[in-house]
């Protein structure tokens, strides 16, 4: 993995929000549901109750959205950023009723086929499904939607530093950021000059400062163990 080079020269980053250096996109994680099949859930804990639990699609810690959703679920039952045990315990109790447990990449397909009607996912997936004409709505859970960022980093000791900066500048520039908000990417931009897509759960990027953020430096050493735990708890 490359070492991160901190950006000292901010002169070319004048177009983006002051908080979002090195970032080139956002994703917001919450709950997606089919409004024609189930009512809107209010929060993470609702996922484990009827009528949602029998239509729930679960996924594990293999991706960012899965990990952060399970952390938030765990917090509802006394867990924390580094303790997901309560979520696994509660999931195990309702496991026979759950509609589907799949790989993260398979979840949109299962939702589209009606195999599950409620799942935790990010705004990008919801926008993609909506774009294909599928009945899906996004809900910000009561305890807060989760925000995470997709970042770009310059490799330490690179021979192409000037070009790397030019590339960073290009990606956070208005043209590329606008293109990234459209299908099939459906990103949330970092550039304040870009108009936000209409179906996002926020009116402006300032609202995101109120969203839940996770400290991934604390999560990463634990994730391998969580993946193994999830396997064992979910195995038939």
């Amino acid at each position: 993995m490359a070492d991160i080079l901190l950006v000292d020269d901010e002169t070319f980053l004048h177009e983006i929000y002051a908080d979002f250096l090195q970032l080139h996109g956002h994703k917001v994680v919450g709950i997606a549901y089919n409004p024609k099949k189930v009512p809107a859930p209010k929060g993470w804990a609702d996922l484990l109750k009827d009528p949602w639990v029998s239509r729930l699609g679960l996924t594990g810690f293999q991706t960012t959205f899965g990990t952060s959703s399970l952390i938030e679920l765990s917090k509802q039952f006394g867990g924390s950023l580094t303790d997901v045990e309560p979520a696994l315990v509660e999931l195990k109790k309702v496991l026979p009723k759950v509609a589907a447990v799949g790989l993260p990449a398979a979840m949109p397909g299962l939702f589209q086929q009606g195999q599950c009607d409620v799942m935790y996912t990010n705004t990008q997936t919801v926008a993609t499904l909506k774009g294909k004409g599928i009945d899906v709505e996004f809900v910000k859970p009561e305890s807060g939607a989760i925000a995470f960022y997709t970042t770009m980093h310059v490799a330490k000791g690179t021979a192409e530093l000037a070009n790397a900066y030019k590339y960073l500048d290009l990606v956070v520039g208005k043209e590329v950021q606008e293109a990234l908000t459209k299908p099939p990417y459906n990103f949330i931009p970092v550039n304040k000059d870009v108009v936000l897509p209409a179906d996002l759960p926020m009116k402006s990027l300032d609202e995101m400062s109120k969203y839940v953020e996770h400290d991934w430096a604390k999560i990463n050493p634990l994730r391998a163990g969580w993946i193994e735990k999830f396997n064992k708890e979910m195995a038939k």
Partner: peptide
Amino acid sequence: QTVIGGVRLIYLPLLIWQ
């Protein structure tokens, strides 16, 4: 195995991928 069987049926290829 993973698409049709789902993640509750755990086989060696899934572990290798993880």
